[in-house]
Amino acid sequence: MSNGMFIDITGLRERDPMRSPGVWSCKNNHRYRTDELWPLRRTDFEGVEAWIPYAFDKVLTDEYGPKSLVTEEWAGHRWKPELREWVKLPKKETLKKQSPKKEQYILKEDENVVIVYEEVIVEV
């Protein structure tokens, strides 16, 4: 994938048009209003024409939160545009050392070492 975006193919139906007209849902009971879905918008996804819901941003933020359209970290992974893939984040190792004057924490992440002194970060 070139941009880190995923495609979700969902089958919808208007389950009770008599009592709840314009309310669509899928097998997982996610509900959408007609005006969130139509008219569909044409887009290009990985070089192929695709159609997306009219209010795709509302649909995504309602389901995944307001940062879902801009976040580059999700579920323990970070999007690396230069690699064009989601890379699993290493678990941070925290070593706590005592010094006579102040506490020092060393965080190891990948091959970088970050030393934190009383909320001041110094990269080594």
Score class of each variant (00 low, 15 high):
14 E>P: 12
15 R>K: 14
15 R>S: 15
15 R>N: 15
15 R>I: 15
18 M>G: 12
19 R>K: 15
20 S>T: 12
23 V>N: 00
23 V>P: 05
25 S>V: 13
25 S>R: 15
26 C>P: 06
27 K>T: 06
28 N>H: 05
29 N>I: 08
30 H>N: 14
31 R>F: 14
32 Y>Q: 00
35 D>S: 08
37 L>I: 00
41 R>F: 02
43 T>S: 10
44 D>V: 04
45 F>Y: 07
46 E>D: 08
47 G>L: 03
51 W>Q: 10
52 I>T: 01
52 I>N: 03
54 Y>M: 09
54 Y>L: 04
55 A>K: 10
56 F>H: 09
59 V>S: 02
63 E>H: 08
67 K>N: 15
67 K>L: 13
68 S>A: 15
70 V>H: 08
70 V>L: 11
71 T>Q: 11
72 E>R: 10
74 W>K: 14
75 A>L: 08
76 G>V: 02
79 W>Y: 03
79 W>M: 09
80 K>T: 00
84 R>F: 02
89 L>M: 12
90 P>V: 00
90 P>M: 05
92 K>I: 01
95 L>C: 07
98 Q>G: 04
99 S>V: 11
104 Q>R: 14
105 Y>H: 14
105 Y>L: 15
107 L>A: 05
108 K>Y: 07
108 K>G: 00
108 K>I: 08
109 E>L: 09
111 E>V: 01
